[in-house]
Amino acid sequence: MNKIDMNDKKYTMKTANREALIGIGLVIFHFIWWFTFAYGFGSRDVSDYKYIFGLPAWFFYSCIVGVIVISVLVYIVVKFFFEEVSLDLEELEKK
């Protein structure tokens, strides 16, 4: 790992910062999805609820579909946008 790594410090730090911003973006998207479906469909009267696979529609979209969507997004983001950088900048190592 601590070989002749071409990454200079600045580049690594930039990558790290960008990936943190992606994390914030994801969590905001996740929150909006979760909130919109849960309270958008869930605030109706119970007798008007629609059901999908036996579950109330608000729950199905917000929780089940939401979880699947976010897992797929996480996979895509990590596979295609995250970079493998070396974590040892200077060769420091233990005490």
């Binding site: 943190a20 994390g23 976010i70 996480v74």
Partner: peptide, 11 residues
Amino acid sequence: GYFTLMILGKK
């Protein structure tokens, strides 16, 4: 699951 490791992450 993702947020913690992305935020603390590499930095």
